[in-house]
Nucleic acid binder design. Sequence first.
DNA 1: ATCATTTCTTAACCTACATCATCTTTCCCG
DNA 2: CGGGAAAGATGATGTAGGTTAAGAAATGAT
Lengths: 190, 190
Amino acid sequence: MPFNLLLNNVSRYIHLTDAEKEIFISLLQEKQLKRKQFFLNDGEICKYSAFVTSGCLRGFTVDKNGIEHVLSFAPPDWWMADMYSLISKKPGTLNIEALEDTDIILLSKTNQEKLYLEIPKFERFFRILIENSLVANQQRIVDNLSLTAEERYNIFCKRYPTLINHLPQKQIASYIGVTPEFFSRMRNKH
Amino acid sequence: MPFNLLLNNVSRYIHLTDAEKEIFISLLQEKQLKRKQFFLNDGEICKYSAFVTSGCLRGFTVDKNGIEHVLSFAPPDWWMADMYSLISKKPGTLNIEALEDTDIILLSKTNQEKLYLEIPKFERFFRILIENSLVANQQRIVDNLSLTAEERYNIFCKRYPTLINHLPQKQIASYIGVTPEFFSRMRNKH
DNA sequence: ATCATTTCTTAACCTACATCATCTTTCCCG
DNA sequence: CGGGAAAGATGATGTAGGTTAAGAAATGAT
């Protein structure tokens, strides 16, 4: 059944009884996205966290010159949301788009709060999830401050080997923080 | 008493009974740092979260060329730790130094885990704390990807007005991601 | 299969910011 | 309050990466 990947993801950090699994699943919704379909547009309030079961999402902002900047990718087994908008309940700046046909499981903010009340263990689960995310983001800040584009690219390759293959170069370039032109030059030089 | 600032910080997100406050306080330690004294050196395992009650800390990494990069500042009412090292229990890369004489309250990782067991509400407290931190870090990544040094400086001034005054320029430059020389030029041109 | 769209490549030129060096100012500790 | 160290200012020059433009290759919807 389609919730297995998610239940497995959860069970890495907390143990759920069958009854608790039932409750959890009852608070979820499934959704399919077509390639290039948006899950969230900037200016909207983000009301759901998305867990990817197949395909891939990307989260990006658009700056005042119309240039896109990729904040994160979400391949299967990853969560994605506009964290700022989700917790503040204010319009956010993130766009979330499917890079290919993608299946996701949705947990609404409302249901997430229900979940915290009904199964407090989930406070722990999401705390740990967010801790890991924070560590990764802090490392990325340090990398952006201290490394060249080439070094950041090498790190990206090591950290997301599965993504490298089926991700357009320009998306990686944007994540790394360089233009597609420079990225192309960088890879083909030597 | 010296724990008031911290109890107030906690009470912004969860309510504690007097008994719970007692337990919490019993798990804390106070510590004073002299100006330039290190609270943590890279290569060490970070075993404590620090809550600043007076003074100011800075967290920074040193790159392979010996250049320092400021990841964060902690004025009073802020928490500081090497999150990576703290949760992985492995040696980290962060240095934490007092920028002036600084008073902190320590919560050891061990006691933090005790706290989660004895007063599960603290799972919620730290989850929310980390959520906010994650949002701020994601915004910083986006800013680094999409803004000029000058724009990042303006944002810094707005976001940390109290810090601007009594922080050496070179520390702000490092946080922004430019050299002290360029930062000086940037501020003095007009 | 085919055409349109998107993605990638390459080249010439440009700019934000770095580096190095020197000088002045501030500040902290005895 | 005085001297030494750290912080800041400023000029000359260097470079990683951006911009613009134009063609080649890959990809996806029909």
